[in-house]
Nucleic acid binder design. Structure first.
Length: 411
RNA sequence: GCCGGGGUAGGGUAGCGGUUAUCCUGUAGCCCUGUGGAGGCUACGAUCCGAGUUCGACUCUCGGUCCCGGCCCCA
């Protein structure tokens, strides 16, 4: 009986694994250069952690279970909440700002489709302790850097929830979130209908509709015309000035709402082409979650990158290293092992474990696309010189082991 | 949860209500235990699962499952 893998999961074969690890390391190098430290949290958490953050409704999307002690648990669906929990549990006395990142698998019970799996990988970054535009700008710049480093051209949209919330400050909560949702979906028709339904004031309608269309360099000025001088616009302007300093291309987009209530100000999303309906590769913003988990009133800002989506469109190939196959005969097998052991200090070395004959060993070397075959036979043992064969050109040289290593390394 | 398209050896495929289920490729071995890529030979290996219709189902019908794309959702 053949057992298949669970729905929405994937096996990664050697070639794909190497490609993923390579890009993962490239991204890791970028964040490390910015001074961020990697953390690891548990693969499963108490269910409560996520219902606190996102409401009871998320349970339907979770891989949750009760353990043998009857505790409600779940595989993590994301990593911002675990990292904030970790901060509250163990890091509150550390000097701020804290700059953390993670790269882990997450699990959601959803219908798989292009760029969406039940087990997927998230690369994320969080800054804890700063509510300044500087932190927001750094986070956006870092996200942009990482995506560029993966060889992807992203389309960055930056917004600020404070501005849209200012317009809606007298609207009741339920209506507010419904409006925000429609705005986020860019559903103009739905928005019109809903305004009609709740009989929204004409001024509010006009202001909101104008605001969410704003873009380009005069967006700030126009927002001021609509709303007057408010603190949120000042802060947003400061953010844009900093982004200019980082020399980042962005689109002002005040229609980004990102759903949930814990986002406090800056929000951004990055899109890429070639991904079908799931074209968002990165999203983030500033938020306040720590007090929800029993910590103080500590502001944070961060983002998550959908690593699997990055890999869908990323074309970076891992660096190739020379592959050496030792070819031996029956009576030189033990000598061949000694040669292989020595060469492995510096090279990637294969040796026959199938008791194959000389010819078939060489043939196998060819099949696995070895760069060099190193022949360790009776003649070589007697002369003390190995036969090194370049599998591409067919050229053969007699060399001492150190010379052989040097030659292969240098090509 | 909903809508559409799919599922034949490890990969790619052909076919038909009754075949020994086609071909390519792959893997292992041999021709050929001191020189690979070509060729020949041999072996391995498949009708997604279940029910129904039928004398007979890989083929038709239904249900499930998985894959692909989309909707909803998207922390």
């Amino acid at each position: 009986m053949k057992v298949s893998k669970p729905r929405g999961t994937r096996d990664f074969l050697p070639e794909e694994t190497a490609r993923r690890r390579n890009v993962e390391n490239i991204m890791r190098q970028v964040v490390t250069k910015w001074g961020y430290k990697e953390v690891i949290t548990p693969t499963f958490e108490h269910l409560e952690l996520f219902t606190l953050k996102s409401g009871e409704g998320v349970v339907g999307e979770l891989y949750n279970f009760s353990d043998k002690g009857n505790r409600d648990m779940t595989l993590r669906p994301e990593l911002t909440a675990p990292v904030m929990r970790m901060y509250v549990n163990e890091m509150q006395a550390m000097s701020r700002p804290l700059k953390l990142f993670y790269f882990e698998n997450c699990f959601r019970y959803e219908r798989p489709q292009k760029g969406r799996f039940r087990e997927f990988w998230q690369f994320g970054v969080e800054v804890i302790g700063s509510n300044r535009a500087d932190a927001d700008a750094e986070i956006i710049a870092l996200a942009t850097n990482m995506i560029e480093a993966a060889g992807i051209k992203g389309d960055l949209h930056v917004g600020h929830l404070g501005i849209i919330r200012h317009i809606l400050k007298d609207t009741e909560d339920e209506q507010k979130s419904k409006i925000m949702r429609l705005v986020d979906k860019k559903d103009d028709e739905g928005l019109d209908n809903y305004f009609e339904e709740i009989n929204a004031p004409a001024e509010l309608r006009r202001n909101l509709l104008e605001l969410i269309c704003l873009s380009g360099s005069d967006a700030i000025a126009k927002a001021r015309e609509i709303l007057g001088d408010i603190e949120e616009i000042d802060k947003f302007e400061e953010l844009l000035t900093l982004l200019d300093a980082y020399e980042i291309d962005y689109n002002v987009d005040l229609s980004i709402a990102r759903g949930l209530d814990y986002y406090t100000g800056m929000v951004f999303e990055i899109y890429a082409e070639g991904l079908g309906a799931q074209n968002q590769i990165c999203g983030g913003g500033s938020y306040q979650l720590i007090s929800l988990f029993g910590g103080g009133d500590v502001p944070s800002t961060g983002f998550g990158v959908g690593f699997d989506r990055i890999m869908e469109i990323c074309e970076i190939q891992p660096p190739k290293e020379n592959k050496v196959v030792i070819v031996a005969t029956d009576d030189t097998r033990t000598d061949a092992i000694k040669v292989a052991t020595k060469m492995r200090n510096e090279l990637t070395v294969y040796i026959d474990i199938m008791k194959r004959n000389f010819k078939t060993q060489l043939s196998h070397a060819n099949n696995i696309e070895a760069d060099y075959a190193v022949i360790v036979g009776k003649k070589e043992i007697e002369s003390g010189k190995l036969t090194v064969k370049n599998m591409q050109s067919g050229e053969q040289l007699q060399l001492a082991i150190e010379e052989a290593i040097q030659l292969i390394k240098s090509n």
